[in-house]
Write a protein that binds this DNA or RNA. Structure first.
Lengths: 205, 205
DNA sequence: TGGTTGACCGGACTTCAGTCCGTTTCGCAT
DNA sequence: ATGCGAAACGGACTGAAGTCCGGTCAACCA
């Protein structure tokens, strides 16, 4: 039981041997390709190892778990998303009121979920989901916006609570099993946010 | 207001052969015992089958999956819970305003989560979580209360959204990893519900 | 350039959920 | 009682995630 996480996105560790770097790249490449052509649900770790021309031990050494590999594959898109949040145009980026930014945040995440449903599902299973860098960043973002909109609320907890509404398993259920449209999910998110954090200029209901 | 629906619990199907009933009881008994003494996380399906003196095929024939078995073990408590919701005293049962009933619902669920964390976690993994009778009943309950409190909201979707805040994996994270107290979780739930569905007599904030 | 070291490699191995199918047993009708 | 068909039984089998460990080789230093 090694709870050690590779931080797949931000930086390779202090120093990485040449063969290690090469294999990491090969694995990511193979995983991306296989996930893309078969869907994440139909790709085993053995498949990835073979496609990458790498032993299974190496695969797990670099990425720790299946969920972590899926998250790493998503990390490029995630980096763009974070960039848009931190430095992009409003309403996703800074400049808009918190409520609108939260709505934009959720809608953007829902779009990404729609486009990469299976990959997200693979990335969100097991413990450690809430500890993954991407999730931590999302939570921090939501926490700050909540606190800005309403300094007295328990933003630390509300943020996790709101993010739970954007989980991949729930998304799949609402979208595929119950057949709700993406538009409806977005409106639902907007409704939830609108009720949770009222806009400042809104005096009475 | 009178939910005269028959709960689709784990009711034995139309007719159950004597050996089937006997084995089902044995399995439930063994599972309860093992889960109780080792914690659900440390009990494999083979363990349960052996303890019950039953083949593995039988185990899966009766319960379908590990998650489903865990849910079945929880079902007695769940039945009591449903009883309290449908016919019990307010604020959990009928008679209190929807907002208060929702708060009581969540607090009660959080208490149960606190007492049987691992079992809930085992029961909530995999797809089919949202299709399980217990979840469906919870959602229906929340949906009706939401609709009663605010007929114009998208209660169908908000109910799933709110219930996501009571998921076992999130509970474990908040409680054990982030170290929040049970009391704080209850307050957070109250805050979320209070914002989502304002009480009717509450004119201004 | 050649030696040393420790990180890295790979694939066999373990564990566990879930499936399959030949065999057994139950319930019923005669 | 007895024969029959359907349902249940059980355990060997499969497939996949994650672990282990002996061998290898990249980096660095002399």
């Amino acid at each position: 039981m090694t709870p050690a996480f590779e931080l797949p996105q931000i930086a390779p560790e202090s120093f990485e041997r040449a063969d290690a770097a090469r294999n990491r790249e090969r694995i990511l490449c193979a995983a991306r390709r296989l996930f893309d052509e078969r869907g994440a649900g139909c790709v085993s770790m053995d498949d990835v190892a073979e496609e990458a021309g790498v032993g299974k031990g190496t695969l797990f050494r670099r990425f720790g778990s299946r969920a972590s590999l899926a998250a790493a594959v998503l990390s490029e898109r995630e980096r763009n998303f974070q960039e848009a949040i931190i430095r992009g145009e409003p309403p996703l980026g800074p400049g808009a009121p918190p409520c609108e930014r939260l709505v934009a945040f959720g809608e953007s995440l829902l779009d990404t979920l729609e486009a990469h449903t299976e990959l997200f599902l693979a990335a969100e299973i097991g413990p450690g989901r809430f500890v993954h860098p991407a999730y931590v960043v999302h939570r921090l973002h939501v926490t700050l916006l909540l606190r800005e909109a309403d300094p007295v609320c328990d933003a630390e907890m509300l943020s996790d609570t709101l993010l739970a509404a954007l989980g991949a398993d729930l998304f799949i259920h609402l979208r595929r099993v119950r057949g709700m449209s993406l538009e409806r999910l977005k409106q639902g998110w907007g409704e939830l946010v609108g009720r949770t954090v009222p806009a400042p200029e809104q005096a009475g209901v």
